[in-house]
């Protein structure tokens, strides 16, 4: 059942992504100033939203774990965080390739980029912390606490382009600006890509959760063997 769901999510996500790519390269109009490279936005922005949605879901799951003590929430939180971390990396990598052309530099220390970098470090720390603790219950509680502490930075990243004047472009999506900053066709494509990313991310999360379950099983069998 679960396996089927993974396949369905992955296939639907992949097909949608392929269709989107076709649209991105053949249907959508060019952007006047930037040339072809502006198309990175269709990876960059959906990846960021996928990652941040994931971090938020992980925060909720962590809180649920602390409330209920049910380790399935902990596994889900860990899996979602890990997958979100990968998408955050995609976001930073594509962004910096875009910056190399548009700004002439790979990186700049403006609040958006800095806080995003910090965000990567925090969640990398989260993944490291999980590796460093063997006992699943303790691991769950401590990493849940870290997830809650760390989410403060996600809010800073999200809000930074409103709080500071950054080199990073201001918000473009109409839910944040009220519209007018972006061609509706392009905005539409960002959302279609976001949907594809979320589907693929969900498929990976399910695979990852299954691994977490096996890991717990191994741990408990090992305890049984040593008891």
């Amino acid at each position: 059942m679960r396996e089927k769901l993974v396949y369905i999510l992955a296939i639907v996500g992949a097909v949608l992504l392929a269709w989107n790519l076709y649209g991105i390269f053949t249907v959508l109009p060019d952007e006047a100033a930037q040339g072809a490279i502006y198309r990175i936005i269709f990876i960059h922005v959906p990846a960021a939203i996928t990652a941040f949605t994931g971090f938020f879901i992980a925060l909720v799951l962590s809180a649920m774990y602390l409330k209920t003590g049910d380790l399935r929430y902990d596994s889900a939180a860990a899996s979602v965080t890990e997958v979100s971390f990968v998408f955050a990396c995609v976001n930073v990598a594509t962004g910096s390739i875009w910056a190399r052309i548009i700004w002439g530099i790979w990186w700049t220390w403006d609040p958006r980029l800095t806080s995003m970098f910090v965000c990567l470090l925090i969640y990398f720390g989260y993944l490291m912390l999980r590796k460093a603790i063997d006992e699943p219950t303790q691991r769950g509680r401590l990493s849940a606490a870290l997830s809650i502490f760390g989410f403060v930075d996600v809010i800073i990243v999200w809000k930074s382009i409103q709080w500071w004047r950054t080199q990073h472009p201001s918000p473009v999506l109409s839910i944040r600006t009220g519209g007018g900053n972006i061609d509706p066709a392009m905005e539409h494509m960002i959302y279609r890509d976001l949907l594809a990313f979320l589907l693929i991310a969900a498929a990976i999360v399910l695979v990852r959760m299954r691994q977490e379950m096996i890991e717990r099983e191994i741990d408990s069998l090992r305890r049984l063997a040593h008891a």
Binding site: S115, V118, L121, G125, L129, A132, F149
Partner: peptide
């Protein structure tokens, strides 16, 4: 958080400096 970890001295700075940055 890190008091019971084997890698206490290593984990603490890795976790804390990013959070302290703002």
């Amino acid at each position: 958080m890190t008091v019971n970890l084997k890698l206490r001295e290593l984990m603490l700075p890795v976790l804390i400096y990013p959070l302290l940055l703002p």
